[in-house]
Computed example of a mutant assay.
Amino acid sequence: MANTAQAKKRARQATKQHAHNTTLRSEMRTAIKKVIKAVQAGDKAAAQEVFRASTRVVDSIADKKIIHKNKAARHKSRLSAAIKAMA
């Protein structure tokens, strides 16, 4: 348990930041799922449009260091490959 005022404040800040990061991470996962759903539906044009939007979300979250930049690149690469594999 935090003893000093500084440690108590940092504990409060950490809790708030954790909640914010969790929200952003959830937003990223939702964006990825939208692309996967569009790919499974078979509509390539819609999948590409959703992919562009989700790329912005993933990059934004990587810039904020909530996820590692390589993880962001991996997600984008796999989604892009799934869209390219469509007929």
Rank of each mutant, 00 (worst) to 15 (best):
K16I: 13
Q48V: 14
A14V: 03
A62N: 05
T15W: 10
D63Y: 00
I83Q: 12
A53Y: 07
K76V: 10
K9W: 03
K64P: 11
R12G: 11
S80N: 15
A5P: 02
I61L: 10
T4A: 04
R74S: 11
R74P: 00
K76H: 06
I32Y: 04
K33D: 12
Q48R: 14
M86G: 08
S77E: 08
A81P: 01
K71P: 01
L24Y: 05
A72Q: 07
A81D: 13
T15S: 11
A38M: 10
R25F: 05
A62K: 03
S54Q: 07
A5C: 00
L79T: 09
A47R: 08
V58W: 02
V57A: 04
D63M: 10
Q6K: 06
A85R: 07
R52Q: 10
V50T: 12
V39G: 06
A72R: 03
D59L: 05
A87C: 05
S54G: 08
K69P: 02
E49H: 11
T23K: 08
S54A: 14
H75F: 12
T55G: 00
A45P: 10
K16Y: 07
L79E: 10
A19D: 09
T23C: 00
R78M: 14
S54F: 02
T55Y: 08
K34S: 13
A7D: 02
K69M: 04
A81V: 11
V58S: 02
K37N: 11
T55C: 02
A31L: 12
E49S: 13
E27R: 12
K16M: 11
A73Y: 03
T55N: 04
R56G: 15
R12W: 00
A7S: 05
N70L: 11
A81C: 05
H20Q: 12
T15I: 14
Q13C: 05
T23Y: 11
R12A: 15
T30C: 02
R12I: 14
A46R: 01
K64N: 11
R56N: 15
K33G: 10
A14E: 05
K9P: 00
T15A: 13
R56E: 15
N3I: 12
V35S: 02
M86Y: 06
K8L: 12
V35R: 01
N70P: 01
A46M: 06
A5K: 01
G42A: 12
I67M: 10
Q13P: 04
